[in-house]
Design a protein around this nucleic acid. Structure first.
Lengths: 217, 217
DNA sequence: AACTGTTTGATAATACTTTCACAAAATTTG
DNA sequence: CAAATTTTGTGAAAGTATTATCAAACAGTT
């Protein structure tokens, strides 16, 4: 116990899925699970399950398996170590409203604290019980209100024009739905892209070239 | 010219981004680009650009570089070789409407041909100019109307109950927004997951553990 | 028409991820 | 209470993906 190797990105990406299934198991009343059972559920291998958990110190017990309860709480601590993250939404259009709703209703670890838009016609309107603010107010708001992440649901152009000010806001991450790629290596700023168009195109390619790799995503 | 090695998933995932930037270059009036210029734009390396394009036969010219026009049309052919794919939307809720809108307005390679939902209160209503159909009609519709992909924007439960019928529909792929993992190894059926919650959690982890890998997504 | 500088395509080297294999630890059984 | 069984943790091997290297190909120049 205590192999302090750093988690790689593939491991981090699997963590939420572990969390999803383990939460389900916990709600089912399952108290224990082995790496092979979990691998079966996850569609991976027992080795990978053990290797993955070992990145974080390995919370299993030899000969016994893993305690569902412990796994759940440990992974939760990994995903949300400092309580809920404070997020602001940029762009109150169709997509922005949907994502905002999603964060409010379906996300336990993130709370939405403000909404911004560039459209004067809707600035000042209420959305999710908050007054929509103008983009000019973004930097000072983030600085004063300790915002952790920006959720970018704007057009490519809006995102591009906001990009130079992002560092000033002091946020640590961007959940990016815009077609703009925030400068990929700003160090200290983590960008998680959700490029819907790219995802759909990748599907299109794979569907059209069926002999494609059998790798699971 | 003609190194027929198969494209790996990471390469396929980069294709849409190449396409995005190359479309931009084309619209800018740029006619030629070198692997190093393109790598700079993409945030990758010249080696990777050349390696990637070589998976598809390599459409550059030594000493000269790549023709933007040619690149654009070749990648387009790779992404959408058989014209537009026919898609149906499952779930006409908040998310479904947003994604449906996105496909209709922002996607060139995919067309939306029908919408389904389980809620009797909205079945029969018009959405995007189409009448919302019941889930029971899904299989026969897909069989008769040659549907290529299903866009799943339903609840986990709805997706789970539909899963056993998916094979019957004869679709080739699923663009999955539901919290349900369609059985990962159905062979012949390609699933592209857009797990918003997982993506947000991964961001949360990375933001909270800033010493995390500097790998670009 | 030869020379120079550039840039690809292909192969080799490096780095990263996943899988394998087995010793150590715990439980169960005779 | 020892032997058999289970199952983790870990280090090594195998498999992928990325980056570096370099010869061959082309354009432009004198």
């Amino acid at each position: 116990m205590s192999n302090t190797m750093k988690a790689s990105l593939p491991v981090i990406r699997r963590l939420p899925r572990y969390y999803r299934y383990i939460t389900e198991l916990k709600n089912n009343g399952t108290t224990r699970i082995s790496s092979s059972q979990l691998a079966h559920i996850m569609g991976s291998t027992p080795s990978q399950v053990r290797q993955d958990f070992n990145c974080f110190g390995g919370f299993g017990q030899q000969g016994v398996g893993y305690s569902v309860e412990l796994l759940h709480s440990e992974i939760e601590k990994l995903l949300f170590p400092e309580g809920r993250l404070r997020a602001v939404l940029l762009g109150a259009g169709n997509l922005g409203i949907t994502i905002g709703n999603f964060v409010l209703k379906e996300s336990t670890g993130v709370e939405l604290v403000a909404v911004f838009d560039s459209d004067n016609a809707i600035i000042g309107n209420k959305l999710f019980g908050m007054e929509i603010m103008a983009f000019d107010e973004l930097v000072s708001f983030c600085q004063n209100e300790h915002v952790d992440i920006i959720i970018a649901c704007t057009t490519k152009e809006a995102a591009e024009s906001l990009a130079p000010h992002i560092v000033e806001t002091g946020v640590k991450g961007i959940w990016n739905y815009s077609h703009f790629d925030f400068s990929i290596n700003d160090e200290s700023l983590i960008v998680e892209n959700v490029h819907l168009r790219d995802s759909l195109m990748a599907l299109s390619y794979r569907v059209s070239h069926k002999e494609c790799p059998h790798m699971q995503e």
